[in-house]
Design a protein around this nucleic acid. Structure first.
Lengths: 138, 138
DNA sequence: CTCCTGATGAAAATTGTTTTCATTATAAAG
DNA sequence: CTTTATAATGAAAACAATTTTCATCAGGAG
């Protein structure tokens, strides 16, 4: 459970530890799939009913700044957030339940070198994301 | 110039060929970088001043349905559209000017197989996108 | 406990996109 | 070259998602 670690990190960055933030952090940290701000809002209100949607946005913004969560791009939309991977990792998402798994794949450099040569671009960054069905959903 | 080809394709799909559509199609087909609906609107109005933004949205929607253009995901947002690649291709974008280039990279199967084995997911699809600086922007 | 100030939630404002609808213009038929 | 049916248009309204404003509240340093 990374919720406590995130809350500590927020405090260490000079932010206050409030009930609202705790409710948001606990939902996002515990989720195995990416959640939209509205989903976080709905889920977190179970623990803290007078949470405002604005606070969800503000908390997600801070967590993203601190690289504790990251935005996930999907065919259906790009507003959802997920616990961030450690260092440079790639994402694998279940198309049915959304369950996310990170993986490493650093044998890609030769491909990038060849693309750089062919195109003349100086390659700086890459995004690799896989979609499939998790074991439970197959 | 793919504009004429797209217009023909629209007609063949039973759509009418109008001044508004022509203006939109000519801008998008001629662009080397992804454009947002608003950018298309501004650029296309040079040729057809009483173009409506709604028509831009509607035309982009049809072009996307016909796989002539595709949505491009970028750190700054995911609303921009670009001439679609042929078959399964990957994108390389210039971080400065946005110029886009497609490339193939089908040596990825072994990586996917190994990920599938490690994670238990049945992999169905992948997105690979590179960012860098084009020759002119370096 | 007190006080300062960051954080909050409600409401308003803003932005991006979609829907509605009366009018216009394309393209097929005569 | 008309006539005509209807797809397409643009303006305005509706809608949805996100951000800003602001008066009030609560965390935590002292």
């Amino acid at each position: 459970m990374s919720a406590e670690r995130w809350l500590t990190a927020l405090q260490e960055n000079g932010y206050r530890l409030t009930e609202s933030r705790r409710a948001v952090v606990e939902i996002v940290a515990a989720s195995a799939r990416a959640l939209t701000p509205l989903e976080v809002f709905d889920l977190a209100r179970a623990a803290h009913p007078d949470l405002g949607l604005v606070t969800v946005y503000r908390t997600l913004e801070k967590l993203e700044e601190m690289h504790l969560i990251q935005r996930v791009h999907q065919p259906g939309g790009c507003q959802a957030f997920l616990t961030a991977g450690q260092g440079h990792q790639h994402l694998l998402l279940c198309q049915k339940c959304g369950r996310a798994v990170f993986f490493e794949g650093d044998d890609l450099q030769p491909l990038f070198d060849s693309i750089a040569e062919k195109t003349g671009y100086a390659i700086q960054e890459h995004w690799l994301q896989l979609f499939g069905l998790c074991r439970a959903c197959q």
